[in-house]
Simulated assay, not measured.
Amino acid sequence: MQEIELKFQIPPAARALLAEALRDATSTSTRLRARYFDTDDRLLARAAFALRLRQEGEGWVQTLKGRGDGLMVRLEHNAPLGTASGDEAPALSLERHAGTPAGVALIALLARAGRTPADLALQFSTDITRTHAEVQAEGAVVELALDVGQIEGGGQTLPVWEIEFELVSGPAEGLLSLAYLWTEAFGLWLDVRSKAERGDRLARGVTQGEVPAPVSVDAGQPWPRQVAAALAPVLALVGEVAEELASPAQRVALAQALGTLAATLRAGVLVQPQAVGAADTVSALAGLVFDTAIWRRAGTQALWFNLLEWSLPGVG
């Protein structure tokens, strides 16, 4: 299963209004308490996997998520485990994901590292109230999920207040259109960092993520794939800058990734005539990596939406 979603941080001034707007969309609320597992040396986190047991209402679900395209798509497999017995979590078992793309990828990862499922241990937990509703947009059905709560790990807590837009059915363009309307209305800013990434840092007592390796874009691929490849490392870093957590090395890496993205966009002028203008904007942003506010502005969010749409298969 591939999950197509976008996640955004919500400015404090807009939180009450956004919550009210979601309640008007015939929403329901669910308390989600989750426990995340990894090896002591963070093998899963370093490979962008997340493995959790989550209590949803009266039942438990074991979920494995893996890296997708780094933009909107992630591998995911959910294994419902039935009714919970109090607060006691069921035992973890990777057999529940056997034969799925995510499960196969995780077993291969453990094998390459000489590790076994027995090396997996609880690292951090989350306690989230999710208010969610399904909305129709341009031929698509999209689930909106407002997550409010906290992440706990390493003796510390981190507040969570974010909203996700997940494609239930129909074209991804419908998800992008709906998410853009809410972004304009409430000043949202795109953040591809997962709760698992943030929880892993909390458990380790660090605030900054790692510097991603430079990306080489294959010019032989279709242009939308080139855009996706060049955009992924940019989006991986802009959340850090917007939240004022980025290290100088991360900001330099962001400038370099923006340069690669600009070159990729200019190469696609025959596919998308507006790409040259977007490339100029991206180049200008490369000189503003030490400016925190620019990464939360509406114009920057509009740019990401354009690039995400151009990265979809079938463009051009």
Rank of each mutant, 00 (worst) to 15 (best):
W60G: 09
A267T: 06
P273C: 02
A79K: 08
I128M: 15
V271I: 10
E88D: 12
T260K: 12
T183Q: 12
P214W: 02
P248G: 09
A246K: 02
L312K: 00
D191M: 05
L307H: 04
E134N: 12
L188V: 01
V141N: 11
A48H: 14
A79G: 10
G205T: 05
R96M: 07
E173G: 12
A302F: 01
E197W: 13
Q226C: 08
V271D: 14
A137V: 02
P248T: 06
L188K: 00
P233R: 01
A118Y: 05
V104S: 14
R130T: 00
R33C: 13
E3Q: 15
A21S: 14
A16Y: 05
T83C: 10
S283P: 01
G174L: 00
I10K: 04
N78P: 07
I107V: 15
Q274A: 15
A13G: 10
G154F: 01
Q250A: 06
P224W: 03
A246F: 02
L202D: 06
W304S: 06
R266G: 08
W161F: 11
R54A: 09
L120G: 10
G220R: 14
T63F: 00
R74N: 11
V289S: 06
L231T: 00
A91R: 14
E173F: 02
I163Q: 03
L106K: 06
S169L: 03
I128Q: 13
Q256A: 14
S85E: 14
T129A: 14
G149A: 10
P12Q: 09
H97K: 08
A293W: 01
Q226A: 09
T30C: 11
E88A: 14
P117H: 04
E164A: 12
T63Y: 00
E56Y: 06
L64V: 03
P80D: 05
G154P: 08
S216W: 10
L181M: 10
S27T: 01
Q9Y: 04
N306W: 11
